[in-house]
Design a protein around this nucleic acid. Structure first.
Lengths: 112, 112
DNA sequence: TTGACGTATGCCTATATCGACATATACTGA
DNA sequence: TCAGTATATGTCGATATAGGCATACGTCAA
């Protein structure tokens, strides 16, 4: 065996920074491919490939209109991730020690 | 250029199912390596390597005790992910259509 | 019908793991 | 000192992308 397939679920889909950027860009509404490619400053083929991955894991949907394809968020797919991560919420460290350490850091940065 | 480095942030760290399993297992408290390897049914070297990745991105910390190393959750590292994903919360689809479809699914499962 | 435009895909190269194994390192007790 | 236990690491083989480029495909306007 070797490296496991990665493009098969939402966890892997959002592991790619540019794919996260695409999802963020789609928060403003559906967008055609070239539009997204331009905003992310990547080639059109690269955009299409990332969009394909996102589509396959159900994070975006497509609407065809003439020669354009408008991609839109399908945010429900992010929900399982939010829930999984949220399961660790009770372990987030909120102690005063931490807070103090943080404040110290800020101070030291100030003095540089 | 080629495939981007993946082991460098929390998003990538949790893209690996076994690493997610390790984090879940650590919710019960710190555990030595062999213990985790046994629970996940993976080899000790594999466990050590996954733990190294998790440590490098700040999702676990180690406490040395004799010849054992106890790994513990450092859940703060998951927080940025929770926040990023939470940013899409407003787009989650809660329409009645959806809910109805879900109820239908449940009914159909019942009739099988 | 033809040419331009918007997208999707196939091919190729470089690289990053995953997993298995063997082995090095470190600590412990006899 | 020495064997035994718990971990970490290096190496090797297989495989999965990311990116770039060329190109196929479908739509539209002239």
């Amino acid at each position: 065996m070797a490296r496991a397939a990665t493009t098969s679920d939402a966890f892997n889909a959002i592991a790619e920074p540019q794919r996260r950027a695409i999802l963020s860009a789609l928060r403003g509404g559906e967008r055609p491919v070239l539009d997204l490619a331009a905003e992310l400053r990547i080639s059109q083929p690269r955009a299409s490939k990332h969009l394909r991955v996102l589509r396959e894991v159900g994070l975006v949907r497509v609407r065809e209109s003439g020669q354009q394809r408008f991609y839109a968020l399908e945010a429900d797919g992010l929900r399982p991730i939010h829930e999984w991560v949220g399961g660790f919420e009770e372990f987030w460290n909120e102690s005063l020690d931490r807070l103090n350490a943080y404040v110290q850091e800020l101070k030291e940065e100030d003095h540089r």
